[in-house]
């Protein structure tokens, strides 16, 4: 009886694994109703009529999403010159709070992104926030993987500090930003976009739609970003 159970378990699990590998390999496909229209103009780089519209579904508190963003931000001038200013790529970030089940800060992080976007300073705020998270937590091994210690629930001031940093070199009204955060003005748009994103990414972020190169997860560096763009046809 035990032998029969072992055989059944072996066959079932092997079939499940092979099936899942095949399913996953064929899974990330561009959805049939994939929209070329940007969800939020302020969360884009480049010209809307560029040759290629590359989309990144992201969450500020997703560590691998942050790794991808940091990878190209550290080579920003080269990245912009090669892909954005050359008119080859229209890069769009679709910000969500898709990992709010795992992170108590995902929602507030998303709201911060959208509040900054309403004032046209999404990218400045996003990179300041990533810099802050890297200094305070990621560089110390906190919030970097499923087994690492989690980032604790952060107070509202943590999300306003990057806005203050941005205000020193860009046009961002900190009072207006604080009011947006306090009154949850950006929350409906964040939630609506998260729902739309969930139908595409199935809980996986970062999720990349670079023409026919569709994938999820990131564990590399700027060289990997370049390979992804190349695989996307650029």
């Amino acid at each position: 009886m035990r032998e029969k159970i072992k055989v059944i378990l072996f066959i079932t699990l092997s079939t499940l694994v092979v099936g899942l590998i095949i399913y996953n390999a064929s899974m990330p496909k561009k959805p049939a109703d994939f929209s070329k229209k940007a969800w939020h103009e302020a969360m884009t780089l480049g010209k809307a009529d560029a040759e290629n519209h590359f989309i990144v579904y992201t969450d500020i508190f997703c560590p691998y999403c942050d790794d991808f963003s940091r990878a190209w931000a550290e080579h920003e001038s080269e990245f912009k010159s090669d892909y954005i200013e050359s008119g080859k790529v229209y890069l769009e970030y679709r910000l969500t709070d898709i990992i709010s089940d795992h992170s108590p800060n995902a929602e507030r992080g998303g709201e911060g992104g959208y509040c900054a976007a309403t004032q046209g300073t999404f990218w400045e705020y996003y990179h300041e926030m990533l810099k802050k998270l890297q200094e305070d937590y990621h560089s110390k091994g906190i919030g970097v993987s499923k087994t690492s210690p989690k980032i604790p629930e952060l107070d509202d001031d943590y999300f306003v500090e990057p806005a203050r940093a941005v205000a020193e070199y860009a046009t961002l009204d900190v009072g207006k930003f604080e009011s947006c955060m306090k009154n949850h003005e950006a929350l409906p748009e964040l939630k609506q976009n998260t729902t739309k994103a969930s139908a595409v990414v199935n809980g996986s972020v970062p999720y990349f739609v670079f023409n026919d190169f569709v994938s999820s997860g990131f564990g590399g560096d700027y060289a990997t970003v370049k390979m992804m763009f190349k695989a996307g046809g650029v």
């Binding site: 694994v17 899942l20 590998i21 399913y23 996953n24 899974m27 969450d59 997703c62 560590p63 691998y64 999403c65 898709i98 990992i99 795992h102 993987s145 499923k146 990414v201 199935n202 809980g203 996986s204 972020v205 970062p206 999820s216 997860g217």
Partner: peptide
Amino acid sequence: CSGCGVSLIAP
């Protein structure tokens, strides 16, 4: 990393 939804079984 099921925490970020990236796993064989997550989809």
